[in-house]
Design a protein around this nucleic acid. Sequence first.
DNA 1: TTAAACCACGTGTACGTACCCGAAGATAGA
DNA 2: TCTATCTTCGGGTACGTACACGTGGTTTAA
Lengths: 355, 355
Amino acid sequence: MKKDSAVELSGVKEIARRANVSIGTVDRVIHNRSGVSEKTKQIIQDIIKELDYQPNIMARRLASNKVLNFAVLIPAVSDETEFWAAPLNGIEQAENEIRQYGIKVEKYYFDLNDKQSFVNLTKQILKTAIDGVLLAPSFIDESLAFTKQCDQLKIPYVLINSDLPKQDSLCYIGPELFHSGYLSAHLANYAIKDNGKVLIINISREIDNHHHLLRKEEGFRAYFDDHDKKLTIVKDDIRQTDYASVASSLKELLKAHTDAEAIFVTNSRVVSVARYLQESDHQKVLLIGYDYLKDNLAYLKDGLIDFLICQKPQEQGYKGIMALYQNLVLKVDVEKNYFMPIDIITKENYQFYRN
Amino acid sequence: MKKDSAVELSGVKEIARRANVSIGTVDRVIHNRSGVSEKTKQIIQDIIKELDYQPNIMARRLASNKVLNFAVLIPAVSDETEFWAAPLNGIEQAENEIRQYGIKVEKYYFDLNDKQSFVNLTKQILKTAIDGVLLAPSFIDESLAFTKQCDQLKIPYVLINSDLPKQDSLCYIGPELFHSGYLSAHLANYAIKDNGKVLIINISREIDNHHHLLRKEEGFRAYFDDHDKKLTIVKDDIRQTDYASVASSLKELLKAHTDAEAIFVTNSRVVSVARYLQESDHQKVLLIGYDYLKDNLAYLKDGLIDFLICQKPQEQGYKGIMALYQNLVLKVDVEKNYFMPIDIITKENYQFYRN
DNA sequence: TTAAACCACGTGTACGTACCCGAAGATAGA
DNA sequence: TCTATCTTCGGGTACGTACACGTGGTTTAA
């Protein structure tokens, strides 16, 4: 029952004692509710500042029996969008950690092939009472419409994986694409002789987030420009993403460019290139691609893929939820732009990597 | 006052209701204190299992007014040991996060040049009442003596940065050295022609943790063995770490090996090598070293250092404290060995790196 | 002058758990 | 049979905060 008197006690009770008021009044000031005279309000606020009062979060969440509802709107995971399994994983991890604090996370998955599914889900979300949103804005215009409504309803939202320019989001968490391409070029450069040749391969359907791939390509090219490297860059777009189609495209491409020393694949479909190289028994080329996925790792291990660039997709989901939590529960400011590190994964370090 | 009846209520109260006992009795079972008959104990335990009861951590910490004391014993930060600023930073970050939960962290800094300072601090720590220890076991025998006493007192301890073999620690958090050397070799290899030459440089005083550097060197050499690479590896130990001494050693070394294509420096003192290369206007060599430190980054930016290997020192501190917290407060099992990822930092990605 | 309205503030209960005290009931010894 | 002791359990208070309600005092209107 006794508290060590040496313990510096803060808390509303101490504030109330010093201000000669009841804790009720202090409470009113803290939540600036009405019903307190300017004078006592000032006194209390001064004391709060002096004591540097930090409310006890646990007691607060215990007492206020409120539940905060977060909505998550991200692409569904499929064979074609395996990437999104990782952010989802991170989201669920965060969910488990903060469930204790009265946070509920409702997840909505849209079809990356179906804009309408996205729109429908945004409508559905807005019908429910939510306190925060985590959004992967794959469809730009539709996302803008959604975030606009969130702004009106004063619902904070966090964007992950791709940004929406000039939006009033709480923050953006995701990759900085240009530099990942730029870095890839640096790595590729070790294999490219002067006047050598490098291939850039985009393997994606129209629907995919094309802007992403373009930025990476820009970064890749910029490196060689900046370093006055003389070389030939050949770029190919492959629009059919099934393996058979990719293989036949590659066959032609590689026949035309037998002298290519390095290949840069702008996304995780580097796996198809690796597979083709292996099956066709192609001579060794430096191969760089994206993402820490199981299939990719297999080829990394085999030495067909030299470098995988990865930007912690799982942590993107984790940080996204945590940003909402920190803002809404802890009332802390969060970084406006949280760019994920650009990690280089090789045969030698992949086993220690954490998504 | 009313709870939504749809809310599934768990909690001791519900358990007590179902078991037809008071919450006091349930409480006794949960903390398996004495004073409960076998019969009711069984009943209550069954109900706990059935409901998958998870105690409310907030209420728990609120009610039990206990304070947990953690002791941290790490090297003091100095010009020579700038590295330790990062773990310390992570420790303080963790401290801030869990202060709310009644955790107090007391930090003790020993002098890496002075074994006795380490021993004295261990004695001092053992005099106070502590619940957990975070330890950087720089001095092996002295650390073993200390951990032995911790074992006897049933105080869990976490080791960071270097491991102590076969100790009953809660966990080890730190680098896996061999593979970081192995990875470095892979990177170096891009610059080394067949029958080429590479230099390994250890710059460290006797007192430094020599074992660390050795493991890295082993990994580095192993790569070339595994890949049947024909090359010459020249190794040099520089025992005087002031710049003037290093410079004069390097001068001789590089004069004798003008054909070296790559240099691998086994720790953060790569900065001295970079500086020497710059000042002596040496031809470009691939230079690989360790740690995300300000001086190193400057040379990375200038292109004198090509790769820095880094193993998230800040996160080591953070995770170390958190491991104690998770074990002692949340009563969760923690990974026995948490090896940090082996990160590759270049001119292109350093700005996005998070320690 | 008195009731109604309003302002400023105090009080009490609740959140879910920990822990202490004491009350029944059972058991044992005389 | 009566008391002493032990076992088993219920009840109460506390942790720090949120919030509903109540209370005393002042101002306003009839």
